[in-house]
C-alpha cells in the first residue's frame, strides 16, 4: 500500500486511546474524579491484548503520536475511533460522564489540531437518554462524523429501546457506527467468555450478523428511513450467504414482521456499509473477484484500522478491484455516506 494510493482516501476507522485514566481526568468534574481516584477502575480494552499480533500496538494517545501516522498516509479525512468506553463498568452515570470526557478529550487533543480529522461520538448503550443528550451536545460542533457504539451489546441493536438514539442520529445525519468488540464477557457463548482469544477475535463477524438482522427485523429502517449504519472492523465476506438466508426466510415469515416491507437485503444495501478491515478473503484472486461481486464493492469503505493488523487481506482486496471500484472503496462511497460531515 503506497502513500500515494491512500492520499485523498477517506479512512473511516483510525484508533486513538488515552494512555491512562489520568489523560481524561481533566475532562471530568470533581465528583467523578474522586470516584475514579478512590477506586481501581482502569481503561484497558478487553478485546486487544497487547501481546497479540493483531492488536499491533497501543493506539496514539496524543496528537504528536498520531501526526506521523497521519502524514505518512495523508488521507483526505480520517475518522478517529476511541473505544475507551468498552472498558467502563455498569454504572450508567459513570459511563455517561466518561463518554463526555472521552469525546471532549478527542476533540481537544486531536480534532481542533488537524483539519483532516473527524471522530465518532462515543456513547454508552447503558443509558440511551444520556446518549441522546451527548449527541445533541456535540451535534453542531462540526468535527464529529458518526455515533460510535460497540457491536457487542446486552440487547440486540434493533430493539425499540435504542430508537430514540436513532431518531437523533437521523435528525443530524450521523451514521451509527457499530464497532467490533464491546464490554468484556460478551462473546457469543453462554458465559460470554471463550477459552481462546482466537475464537473471540473471530466472533465479531457472528455478532455483526445478529445485529444486522436485528436492525432490519425490528423495522428500524421503516421508522428511520434516512438512518445509516456502518459496521466497523467486523469484516464483510460473511455477508452474501447471510443475506440469501435472510431474504429467503423473510418470504415465508414476513407476517411476523410486516413493517419489513422490502426484502431484507434491500434494506441492508441501502442503509448499511462495512469497513474493509478485516478483509477475510480467499487466497485465490479469482475467488476474491467472485466474493467482491457477490458482496458488491459499493458496500465497502476503506479503513486503516490503525494500529490493528489483520494480515494482507486488504491489499489483496484492492488488487482485485477495478480502478473505479477502488476509488469508491477508498473515497467515493464514504464521501456519499458521510456527506457534509466529512466535507
Amino acid at each position: 500500500m503506497t502513500a500515494m494510493t491512500l492520499t485523498a482516501a477517506v479512512d473511516c476507522d483510525l484508533h486513538v486511546a488515552p494512555s491512562s485514566l489520568g489523560t481524561v481526568l481533566p475532562y471530568l468534574d470533581e465528583y467523578w474524579r474522586s470516584y475514579i481516584e478512590d477506586s481501581t477502575v482502569g481503561l484497558s480494552h478487553p478485546g486487544y491484548p497487547l501481546g497479540a499480533a493483531t492488536t499491533g500496538g497501543t493506539p496514539p494517545s496524543s496528537y504528536d503520536e498520531l501526526a506521523p501516522v497521519l502524514n505518512a498516509a495523508n488521507p483526505h479525512r480520517a475518522i478517529l475511533t476511541c473505544l475507551a468506553l468498552d472498558g467502563v463498568h455498569r454504572n450508567p452515570y459513570y459511563a455517561a460522564a466518561m463518554a463526555r470526557a472521552v469525546n471532549d478529550w478527542v476533540r481537544e487533543e486531536f480534532l481542533v489540531r488537524d483539519e483532516r480529522l473527524r471522530a465518532g461520538i462515543a456513547v454508552s448503550p447503558l443509558d440511551i437518554p444520556a446518549a441522546v443528550q451527548e449527541v445533541e451536545r456535540l451535534a453542531d460542533d462540526g468535527r464529529f462524523a458518526q455515533i460510535l457504539l460497540p457491536v457487542r451489546g446486552d440487547v440486540p441493536y434493533g430493539n425499540r429501546l435504542y430508537h430514540p438514539l436513532y431518531a437523533v442520529a437521523q435528525e443530524h445525519g450521523f451514521p451509527i457506527a457499530l464497532h467490533a468488540w464491546g464490554r468484556g464477557g460478551k462473546a457469543p457463548s453462554m458465559t460470554g467468555v471463550t477459552a481462546t482469544y482466537l475464537e473471540d477475535y473471530s466472533s465479531n463477524a457472528q455478532i455483526a450478523q445478529v445485529q444486522m438482522m436485528s436492525l432490519v427485523a425490528e423495522g428500524v429502517f421503516t421508522r428511520f428511513p434516512q438512518l445509516k449504519v456502518v459496521f466497523m472492523e467486523c469484516g464483510f465476506s460473511w455477508l452474501p450467504p447471510q443475506l440469501w438466508r435472510f431474504d429467503k426466510d423473510w418470504k415465508g415469515v414476513w407476517r411476523e414482521v410486516p413493517w419489513v416491507k422490502e426484502r431484507p437485503s434491500d434494506y441492508v444495501r441501502r442503509h448499511m456499509r462495512f469497513t474493509t478491515e478485516p478483509a477475510q478473503l480467499p487466497q485465490d484472486p479469482h475467488q476474491i473477484a467472485q466474493v467482491v461481486e457477490m458482496v458488491g464493492p459499493e458496500l465497502l469503505m476503506y479503513a486503516s484500522d490503525y494500529p490493528h493488523q489483520h494480515g494482507d487481506g486488504f491489499e489483496r482486496l484492492l488488487a482485485a478491484l477495478s480502478d473505479e471500484d477502488a476509488e469508491s472503496v477508498l473515497r467515493g462511497t464514504a464521501a456519499a455516506f458521510y456527506g457534509d460531515l466529512i466535507a
Binding site: 457472528q206 436485528s214 415469515v253
Partner: peptide, 24 residues
Amino acid sequence: DHGGTGRPSFYLEEHAGYGVIMQT
C-alpha cells in the same frame, strides 16, 4: 442464551440465525 448479544425478538432472526450459531 445466544451469549453476547442477547436473544432475538422474532422468529425471522432466530431461524436466519441457525447458521450463525453453527459458525460459533
